[in-house]
Simulated scan of single mutants.
Amino acid sequence: MAGTSSFVKKLSNSVKKVSESKSSSWWYNHHMRAASRAISQRIPLVDFVLEVRDARIPVSSQYGQLRYFPSSSRNIIILNKMDLASHSKTKEWMAYFKEQNCIPYAVNSHNKDNIKEFLNFLQAKVRDLRRNTHFSNTQTTTVMIVGIPNVGKSAFANSLHQIGRITAAEKGKLKQAKVSPHPGETKDITSLKIASHPNVYILDTPGILPTEIVDIERSSKLALTGAIADSLFDQPELAQYFLSILNLSHEYKRWEKISGESELDEKEDRTMNDHTQDLVVRAVRRALFEEISAFKGNLEDEKDMVQLIEAQFTTLRKVFNVNSDSFEAANSIVATKLINLYRTGRLGHYTLDSLQGM
């Protein structure tokens, strides 16, 4: 989209600099290299591979290492974070993957009912495998979870482990995979039991990025969704990219009914430093709706888009009650809060990858 191209270029240039830097301690570091080798060695030995992707970027979050292995009915694409993506777009992507003879499954790792449904689905696959092969009743089924950083692999693994242990009525302290909002936190392959009779274990693996990302759109989407560490980017650049997407979407139109609400009173104003409060989120939505609705420029024109985003930052500094002598510091605070609201779904549900051209 023309209105987002300048922001895409900024982010992709940042990604390129980091990926090409020999001194980078984060991009494809020694942990990723070692994990990449270990995963490649184990994939042929496991019974199922669950490739976890971010439902907001079903193609951009593809795990590249799997292209070296033949596709089979034992590979399942997990579209995680479905609660953060467009529901209608997720259904379209599910249909697309099925047309490609893939097995897709959309999940929200934090929804117990959803995880129970998937566990039943997986156990049915395990039973089919055991009927059609020479498994003995005592053999263990192994399932490897793979994916790029921060698509929710460990949260998904823990949810399967917890639901599976409860279903199997197994007691004792739960062994959990480490979960973090920051990419690259999982360093080792962790084994967790998710079913008994027969035993089923999942292997949670570290997130692996490719050694380089050539596609500038993809690198920007990975940055925005958190697959690449935030510390590598200027936060206002990320926020500007998100606002360009929001401004060209129809999501903001859902907030029309709150646009006429009264301003915050003095008591409410004191809560504005906590951007996670529902009151603050509503104020952010109202402010963004009013700024976009009142704008008379052409959002397909980059200069006009920049003008609108600058106005939105000015308004959001007031909404978030940000007071700073430094213009740059104030914008950084606003950007960090705005990106957090986007990533937690408080500012709408966006699927950034498009089926057009697939």
Results as ranks from 00 to 15, higher is better:
339 I>R: 00
348 G>D: 06
346 R>Q: 10
303 K>N: 13
301 D>T: 08
310 E>Y: 06
302 E>C: 08
329 A>P: 01
329 A>T: 13
299 L>M: 09
314 T>Q: 13
341 L>S: 01
338 L>W: 03
332 S>N: 14
337 K>L: 01
312 Q>S: 10
352 L>F: 14
330 A>D: 07
345 G>M: 02
315 T>E: 10
315 T>D: 08
338 L>N: 00
330 A>M: 09
346 R>A: 04
311 A>L: 11
320 F>H: 12
297 G>L: 10
330 A>W: 04
294 A>Q: 15
344 T>R: 08
340 N>C: 02
301 D>M: 05
307 Q>F: 14
352 L>H: 08
307 Q>G: 07
294 A>M: 13
339 I>M: 05
331 N>V: 06
347 L>I: 11
297 G>Y: 12
305 M>Q: 15
336 T>M: 05
326 S>N: 12
348 G>W: 02
311 A>F: 04
346 R>M: 05
298 N>K: 14
356 Q>L: 15
330 A>G: 11
309 I>Q: 08
324 S>W: 10
302 E>F: 10
318 K>G: 03
315 T>W: 00
352 L>Q: 07
293 S>I: 03
293 S>W: 08
350 Y>K: 05
356 Q>C: 04
309 I>F: 07
357 G>M: 09
321 N>L: 11
300 E>V: 02
303 K>Y: 13
320 F>M: 08
297 G>C: 15
295 F>N: 07
346 R>D: 03
325 D>K: 12
301 D>A: 09
322 V>H: 08
357 G>N: 12
308 L>T: 09
325 D>Q: 15
333 I>H: 08
348 G>K: 04
323 N>D: 14
330 A>N: 11
310 E>N: 15
347 L>W: 02
343 R>C: 01
319 V>M: 04
323 N>V: 11
329 A>R: 13
346 R>N: 05
332 S>G: 07
295 F>A: 07
304 D>R: 06
304 D>V: 06
327 F>Y: 11
348 G>H: 04
303 K>M: 11
312 Q>P: 03
347 L>K: 03
322 V>R: 10
297 G>E: 10
302 E>I: 11
325 D>H: 13
334 V>T: 10
357 G>E: 13
345 G>P: 00
333 I>C: 06
314 T>H: 14
306 V>K: 10
311 A>C: 07
